[in-house]
Design a protein around this nucleic acid. Structure first.
Lengths: 348, 348
DNA sequence: CTGAAAGCGCTAACAA
DNA sequence: TTGTTAGCGCTTTCAG
């Protein structure tokens, strides 16, 4: 009795139809093949019995794992030039959460693998039998590309920081300029004149943001060498610099964590934010937005959209042999003024 | 041709044996049933062909999902009394990584679900068809317990902070006293006399640590009301307090992040750590240990062991109807002196 | 539009 | 110790 409770056969018996009708009724792609009234009746029993198809059976039959492997690079946080207080606690989980949601929405399972610096992934991770595709997150290495080519396993790199110029891999990345351009124009319009850049010394992942800001500052004629500071290694550097440099009215920071520190330090020094100085971060990090936060101005990286796009692109390649091998998709960033950037003309 | 490449049948044909022999040879639990020479021969082809069993088929046959669902509570980080700089970037991923490893070691898949504050998990998460058991991580709510009981889905709560007195749920937790006791005794022996406690105002998850320290400080006669400070809400509080209170020689902090801030601030003030003051954190957080870190003294919570224990206990219940319903396992913490606690008698 | 039936790859019961 | 075989639940083909 218990045995048959959860099978198409059982539902079929209850509804007085054949099991293939139940199968059809349950698959959105084939449900049109079944008479609406019949479908309604079947669904009634499906809900009553709390039935859902046996995934193992389905996957065996379809010869598909319905699994997307997400490979996350676990940065150690520990750097010579970058203190850990500049790493957001969201860092490790934001992308995973977005990908998890996107993958679930497509009825796939997410299989997580972690790349730890200096450690190799076992070969079986890329077994075609066990996964249909791979998404690398925040990883820039290519040591697995050969292996992926060999087993023809669709794959994709997704990252907020990856170099947009890379064409050696499939890529879902960010076009960071639009957000920065919007921000600069809004700030200029509101009367800002002395623009600063705060970031840790260049790492691969920051280089691009620094270059973009550098170019844009020059383009808009607001570059000032004394205010361009890719030298902020920790909170104490912020403390020190803000004590000395008071000739600033807009500070771009390489992420929201740093921006938040800057805001707090300025306010402790009696400087009004955004009244006297506007502070702009990067990432739209949930830890610094919403209640109990300073709600820093930021350049939004559309994380959910990135995850959805990555999954969608991967599925294209999974389901269609002829899909483009190496998609190269860049999503635009957007300026979000938050509560720490003045975008109205001062004095209005 | 390609079709049969990855099946027992194919390996069987290559090795000149029946497919059941291959099946047996590959299952550690049954491999003794096959002649060693035969097994060797079979394994040769298995490796050559890079074969691994089709999990869908296996799971269908065994009527098992071979999935453990890990439900992670996503704290929002944002509190009135607890600034985000006191949250480690390891927080969101440490447990997941340990559980992932433990689950993989048992040849199960990990399915991740996130509990977002104020949002309910869909019912199908607990479908017996799709998962064999559930581990809640850092979650204390019980709204799913009924649902789990109803579907007889084995489940367990695992957390470094959960109240050890809870017997309403299966539990893998921590016995935090041993580590603290070791630390206090070591520090006393090394000549420390003025002990302080730094933590944010009580949250559920901190209450236990505060109570333990409170009790132990009293037991050892080292409690000093002026130094017992569950009032540290952010870095600036640390800055302020360390400027005023210089009559301290050992500071216990509620986690390694706070301890690290204290160490840095003390050293900036010219106080030697551990020469003048010892600082002890909690968690053995990887972000504060090893190269490029202060390697703070800490009370180690054995995370890997916790994950392994949780998975093992859950599997006991999955595989044995008669296994204890609600295990109550507490693992001991251990004091790790690191580089910020003096455990040698001063002057030695 | 509906039903019957084949067969995906595997494990386990049974036979040899 | 090894081989044969039933059948897990599903999707899809084919026949009606």
């Amino acid at each position: 009795m218990e045995k048959n409770r959860h099978s198409l056969k059982h539902i079929a018996k209850l509804s007085g139809v054949s099991l293939s009708s139940v199968s059809r009724a349950l698959d959105p792609a084939r449900s049109h093949m079944v008479r609406p009234e019949l479908r309604t009746k079947i669904l009634k029993f499906v809900n009553e019995e709390n039935f859902s198809v046996n995934l193992s059976a389905r996957r065996l039959r379809l010869n598909k794992a319905e699994v997307i492997t997400v490979i996350v690079y676990l940065d150690s946080f520990k750097h010579k030039n970058f203190s850990v207080e500049f790493v957001s606690p969201s860092a490790g989980r934001d992308d995973i959460q977005c990908l998890s949601a996107a993958i679930k929405a497509r009825h796939y399972d997410m299989k997580l693998e972690f790349i730890v610096p200096g450690q190799q992934l076992p070969y079986h991770v890329f077994d075609r039998n066990r996964t249909d595709g791979v998404i690398f997150v925040s990883y820039y290495g290519t040591e697995y590309v050969d292996c992926l080519e060999k087993s023809k396993l669709p794959n994709l790199y997704m990252s907020r920081y990856i170099d947009t110029g890379r064409h050696d891999v499939g890529l879902v990345g960010l076009n960071r300029e639009p957000g920065y351009r919007q921000a600069i124009e809004a700030l200029l319009k509101a009367g800002h004149r002395r623009f600063a850049w705060f970031s840790p010394p260049m790492q691969t992942s920051l280089r691009v943001n620094i270059n973009i800001i550098n170019d844009l500052f020059h383009e808009y004629g607001i570059f000032d060498e004394r205010l361009f500071l890719p030298t902020i290694c920790n909170y104490y550097d912020i403390q020190g610099i803000l004590k000395v440099r008071r000739d600033v009215d807009a500070i771009f920071c390489s992420n929201d964590v740093i921006a938040d520190w800057v805001v707090r330090e300025l306010r402790r020094n009696g400087v009004r934010v955004p009244g006297d100085v506007s502070v702009i971060g990067y990432d739209n990090d949930p830890a610094y937005h919403g209640e109990w936060t300073n709600n820093v101005a930021t350049i939004e990286a559309p994380k959910s959209l990135m995850a959805e796009t990555a999954v969608e692109e991967l599925l294209k390649r999974i389901n269609d042999e002829n899909a483009e091998e190496r998609p190269h998709i860049l999503l635009d960033t957007i300026f979000i003024p938050g509560d720490t950037a003045l975008t109205q003309v001062k004095g209005d």
